[in-house]
Nucleic acid binder design. Sequence first.
DNA 1: ATAATTTGGTTTATAAAATAAACTAATCTA
DNA 2: TAGATTAGTTTATTTTATAAACCAAATTAT
Lengths: 97, 97
Amino acid sequence: MFQPLDPLLHSELRLAIMSLLISSDEAEFPYIKEQTGATAGNLSVQVEKLSAAGYITVEKTFKGKRPCTICRITPDGLKAFETYIEALKSYLEVKTN
Amino acid sequence: MFQPLDPLLHSELRLAIMSLLISSDEAEFPYIKEQTGATAGNLSVQVEKLSAAGYITVEKTFKGKRPCTICRITPDGLKAFETYIEALKSYLEVKTN
DNA sequence: ATAATTTGGTTTATAAAATAAACTAATCTA
DNA sequence: TAGATTAGTTTATTTTATAAACCAAATTAT
């Protein structure tokens, strides 16, 4: 009937992060922060969770002299996102039986 | 960019309850319990939250001698559900800009 | 008849999650 | 060189989800 919703993706901020990374393939921490309106602390925690799950990679590099954290979606992350959307449909479609 | 997701609906169980009520317009507590696979306790709590928000009504009646709790969606609930789906789309569509 | 079981829940306690506040460290600017 | 800004992380707090424990009535078995 209802397919389970991946709890890692069923979160407003983490879903927004994944959505951004699907669209832009790679994004810097401050950009994600600006686009999502999240606080840096919250974003840091959620990025770490997605990274720990293998849904995104986090590269810590430099942009000139300043630190620069770049996030990218992984194939696993893309797969999980697609599965999540499919699962969501089981909640959104009107059942006829 | 991203539209906020009504936290009352952005919950696996509450979303399932709302989904059932949209499809069947009216449903008994044990039926919802069976369809969602939720425990009675969890279901009771989430039904109460939806009821407190005015998204559903809860009628406590009897079926023969046994108590019977009937849930129905309200116009407000339907509206909120539709708004939630629209908001979700802002996370699921691939952005081109 | 009464003891055990089932039905239909509610209340309460616990575990997990989201979020913000506080903090660190380096760089830029006045 | 003092203050402000950037780029985050860590930690504490609040909120939420969930299950366990509980209650009451009805049904079934002994």
